[in-house]
Write a protein that binds this DNA or RNA. Structure first.
Length: 595
DNA sequence: ATAGGGTTAG
C-alpha cells in the first residue's frame, strides 16, 4: 500500500510532457438533398465522377449513396465503389456490405481484386471463413489472383474462428508453395493470432525465428508478444524481449510501454513501473488515455481509489480527457471498496461529461451493489438499464444472477435465467456455473443436475469448476458417496481435479469419518502433482474435529505443520474448545508446542 | 491512388 502511495505521488509530481490538445470534430450537417452528395469534377482526364464520402454518417446514407452511384452515367469507377464498401465495413455492418456487393454484381458494377478482398474480409469478420475461402473461386473467375492481402485476411479469419492449426497450416503453405510473399501485416496477423489463442510461447519462438529471416517483424509484432507475455505473468521475459527489440533497432512505442507498464503494475512492481514512466517521458513518449487508464486500473484493483482519482486529476491537467473506460474502471474501484454511492454518482455524472454510459458501466455498478449485499439496488439498476433502452449482455445476466442466488433468491434467479434465452442471448459456461452453484448452495441438487444435462445439450461443456460445484453441493447435502463417484468419473470426461476439488472431497470424507479414504486420496492427490495447500489441511481438520476425531485431527495438524502451513483461526478455536471439553487443562500448551 | 494490422475496463 505504502509503495503504491509513493508511486502515486511520484506520478503526480512528475511533469509529463505536455500533450497536444484534443480536437473537436465539428459536426458536419448532413444535407439530405441527393445532389450535395455528389461532386462531379470536370477534369479533362478523369471523365468518371468522383464521389464525396464525407457526408456518410450511417449505413442508410451509405446505401442511399450506393443506389445513386448505380444510376450515374458515366458510371463511377471501381475505386469509388470500393471506397463505399470500405465505409460500410468501418461501421461494422458486414452483412450490409455483402448485400451491397451482391447488388453490385447484379447491376454489373465494376469489381476488382480490392473489392473481392473486402468481401473475403466481411465473411471472415462474420465468422464464416469458409465463405471467405469460397470467394477464391470468384477471384479466378474474374481473372484475378488472390494476393498477400487475401491470404492474410483468410489467416485472420481462421484465427477468429479458433481454427489455430488451420491458420498455421495456411501460413506454412504460403511459404512453401510461395503463394505470396508475406509482409509485416501477415506476420503480425500470425503472431497476434497465436498470442490471442494462448500460444504465447509459439508466437515468441516464431518472432525470434523471423528475426533471422528476411521477413522482419515490425514493432506491432513485438508489442503483441510482449503484451501476451505480461498477461501470462512472464513480465521478465517481456522485459528481455523489450531489450532485444531495441537491440535490433526497433523503437518501442506507446503500446509497447503501456503493455509493460500494465505487467509491472499487475504484479506489484511499482518501483519499476515508476522508472518506466520516467523513461517514457525521457524518450518523449507522451502518455495517452490508455496508459493513464492502466494506472487508474492498477490503483483501483489495490483499493486505492484516492490515488486513482489523483491519476485522473493529472490526466485532465495534461488535457487528456477521461473516457468511458476511465469512468468504468473508477466505478469498479469504488464498488470494490464498498463506496457504491460514489460509484453511482460517478455513473450519473457521465452524460454531463459528454460520455454515454455503456452496458459495461451498468454491469460494473450492478456488480458493485451485488457484492456489497445491496441486491435491491442492483435489481433497481438492472431494470433502469432496460428503461434507458440499453441492451443487456451475458455479463449483465451473470452478475445479476450471482447477486440473486447469493441473497438466497433462488426462484428469482431461475426466472431471470429463463429471461436470458428470451433476450436471445446465449448463456455461457459462467452463466451455468453461477446457476448450478446458486441451486446447490440453496440445496436444490436435483435441479442443478437437470441443468447440467441442459447445458450439455446446448453445447456448453461443463468444466472442472462445474463439477466442483456439484460435488460440493452433494457433500454439503451429505451425499458423499455419490459425490465420490462423480469425482472418480472425472478422468473419463478428460478433466483433471484441481486443489480446490480435492480439498472439497477430502474435507467431506474427513467430516464423514472416512479417515482412511481421505488419507488415500491425499496421497493420490500429491501423486497427481497437485499439492495440498493450507486450505486443504484446515478443511480436513475442521471436518475431523466436527466428528470429534481428536487424535486423527492431531495427525493432520502435525502433517500440516511439517508442510509449513499453520492452522487458521477456526481450527485453533475448535481445537481449544474440544481439548477443554475433554478436561485436558494442560493440553493447549502441548498443542502449541506441536505446532 | 480503392483491400488485410495492435494497447485499456466488466
Amino acid at each position: 500500500m505504502k509503495k503504491m502511495r509513493v508511486f502515486a505521488m511520484a506520478v503526480i509530481r512528475r511533469g509529463f510532457a505536455a500533450n497536444k490538445s484534443y480536437t473537436v470534430t465539428s459536426p458536419l450537417s448532413f444535407l439530405s438533398s441527393s445532389f450535395h452528395n455528389l461532386t462531379h469534377k470536370n477534369m479533362p482526364f478523369s471523365p468518371n465522377p468522383r464521389i464525396d464520402f464525407s457526408y456518410i454518417h450511417d449505413v442508410d446514407d451509405a446505401v442511399f449513396l450506393f443506389r445513386q452511384m448505380l444510376r450515374m452515367r458515366p458510371q463511377p469507377c471501381v475505386v469509388e465503389f470500393n471506397k463505399l464498401l470500405t465505409s460500410i465495413v468501418k461501421m461494422k455492418k458486414y452483412s450490409v456490405t455483402l448485400n451491397v456487393f451482391d447488388e453490385m454484381r447484379q447491376s454489373g458494377a465494376p469489381v476488382n481484386e480490392y473489392t473481392l478482398n473486402i468481401v473475403v474480409n466481411c465473411h471472415c469478420l462474420l465468422n464464416r471463413v469458409d465463405f471467405g475461402f469460397a470467394v477464391l473461386g470468384s477471384f479466378f473467375k474474374c481473372g484475378y489472383k488472390p494476393d498477400v492481402t487475401t491470404f492474410t485476411t483468410l489467416i485472420k479469419g481462421l484465427f477468429l474462428g479458433d481454427k489455430v492449426v488451420e491458420a498455421e497450416k495456411l501460413f506454412k503453405k504460403l511459404l512453401t508453395l510461395k503463394l505470396c510473399e508475406p509482409d509485416e501485416v501477415t506476420i503480425l496477423t500470425v503472431i497476434n493470432g497465436l498470442c490471442k489463442a494462448g500460444h504465447t510461447l509459439t508466437a515468441y519462438d516464431l518472432l525470434r525465428l523471423f528475426e533471422k529471416t528476411s521477413f522482419k517483424p515490425d514493432v506491432s509484432s513485438y508489442n503483441s508478444v510482449i503484451d501476451s507475455l505480461c498477461k501470462d505473468r512472464m513480465v521478465d521475459d517481456a522485459l528481455q524481449l523489450l531489450a532485444k527489440m531495441i537491440d535490433k533497432g526497433i523503437s518501442p512505442d506507446i503500446v509497447t510501454y503501456s503493455s509493460i507498464l500494465r505487467g509491472l503494475c499487475n504484479f506489484g512492481r511499482w518501483k519499476e513501473a515508476k522508472d518506466l514512466i520516467t523513461k517514457m517521458v525521457d524518450h518523449k513518449i507522451s502518455l495517452n488515455v490508455i496508459t493513464f487508464n492502466i494506472l487508474v486500473d492498477a490503483f483501483c484493483k489495490e483499493g486505492l481509489v484516492k490515488e486513482a482519482e489523483d491519476v485522473v486529476e493529472i490526466m485532465m491537467q495534461r488535457n487528456i480527457l477521461p473516457d468511458v473506460v476511465t469512468y468504468n474502471t473508477l466505478v469498479d474501484g469504488y464498488s470494490l471498496v464498498g463506496q457504491t454511492d460514489k460509484a453511482r454518482k460517478l455513473l450519473d455524472s457521465m452524460p454531463g461529461k459528454g460520455l454515454k454510459p455503456s452496458i459495461i458501466s451498468y454491469n460494473s455498478l450492478i456488480n458493485g451493489y451485488c457484492k456489497n449485499g445491496k441486491v435491491e439496488e442492483a435489481w433497481g439498476l438492472f431494470l433502469e438499464v432496460r428503461r434507458k433502452g440499453l441492451e443487456y449482455d451475458v455479463v449483465t445476466y451473470n452478475t445479476m444472477l450471482q447477486g440473486l442466488f447469493c441473497a438466497g433468491r433462488c426462484a428469482d434467479g431461475l426466472k431471470l435465467f429463463k429471461d436470458v434465452q428470451y433476450q436471445q442471448l446465449i448463456p455461457n459456461l459462467l452463466t451455468y456455473n453461477i446457476l448450478l452453484n446458486g441451486l446447490c448452495m440453496n440445496k436444490h441438487i436435483d435441479e442443478a443436475f437437470s441443468f447440467l444435462h441442459i447445458m450439455e445439450e446446448q453445447g456448453v461443456n461443463p468444466d472442472i469448476t462445474t463439477y466442483g460445484i456439484l460435488i460440493h453441493g452433494l457433500c454439503k447435502d451429505e451425499k458423499v458417496e455419490i459425490a465420490r463417484n462423480l469425482f472418480n468419473s472425472l478422468p473419463c470426461k478428460g478433466l483433471r481435479p484441481n486443489v480446490q476439488l480435492y480439498t472439497i472431497i477430502i474435507g467431506s470424507l474427513c467430516q464423514e469419518g472416512q479417515v482412511e479414504e481421505a488419507k488415500c486420496l491425499l496421497v493420490e492427490m500429491e501423486k497427481s502433482g497437485c499439492a495440498p495447500n493450507s486450505v486443504t489441511y484446515n478443511v480436513c481438520i475442521q471436518g475431523l474435529l466436527k466428528r470429534k476425531l481428536l487424535s486423527e485431527a492431531k495427525a493432520f495438524l502435525d502433517e500440516m505443520c511439517r508442510q509449513g502451513f499453520s492452522p487458521d483461526a477456526t481450527v485453533v478455536s475448535m481445537l481449544l474448545d474440544q481439548l477443554q471439553d475433554k478436561g485436558w487443562r494442560y493440553c493447549s500448551s502441548e498443542s502449541t508446542d506441536n505446532c
